[in-house]
């Protein structure tokens, strides 16, 4: 198979997988799921590291390094904040959706 067609095949199958895998989520988990999915696309860090590692010239390296910092924020921050969000699910009855969306309590 032509490599670009192979990648296209993967793309199409991944669309259906992504669709199916979240189609039955309960509404209490909408916000954590969004946050977790947000962390997953932080994997762009792999791309940022690779292009920075092959960049030529100060300009390209600078842009690449900015991308690395931004992608790290997305990946690491995303997983940490999702974990904190899910802490309040452990052991207790799941709070109502509005509480999750607005945070628990009034501060």
């Amino acid at each position: 198979m032509d490599p670009s067609i192979a990648l296209l095949t993967v793309f199409v199958l991944a669309i259906f997988t992504g669709y199916e895998v979240v189609s039955k989520v309960s509404s209490t988990l909408h916000t954590p799921l969004m946050s977790g999915a947000n962390a997953i696309h932080g994997i762009i860090l792999v791309g940022a590291v690779v292009v920075t590692g092959h960049a030529d010239g100060a300009g390209e390296v600078t842009i690449g390094l900015i991308a690395v910092v931004l992608a790290t924020l997305n990946l690491v921050g995303g997983f940490v904040v999702t974990d904190r969000m899910l802490e309040m699910f452990s052991g207790k009855r799941p709070p109502a959706d509005t509480e999750v969306a607005a945070g628990k309590g009034t501060e």
């Binding site: 490599p3 990648l7 993967v10 793309f11 991944a14 669309i15 259906f16 997988t17 992504g18 669709y19 895998v21 979240v22 189609s23 989520v25 909408h30 799921l33 969004m34 999915a37 947000n38 997953i40 696309h41 994997i43 762009i44 792999v46 791309g47 690779v50 292009v51």
Partner: peptide
């Protein structure tokens, strides 16, 4: 673009699940 299947799959999963979500 950079020929990395992990980025392709990870990104597509989020694209599709994010749309349905």
């Amino acid at each position: 673009v950079i020929g990395n299947a992990l980025l392709l799959i990870g990104g597509t999963l989020v694209g599709a699940s994010g749309t349905i979500l």
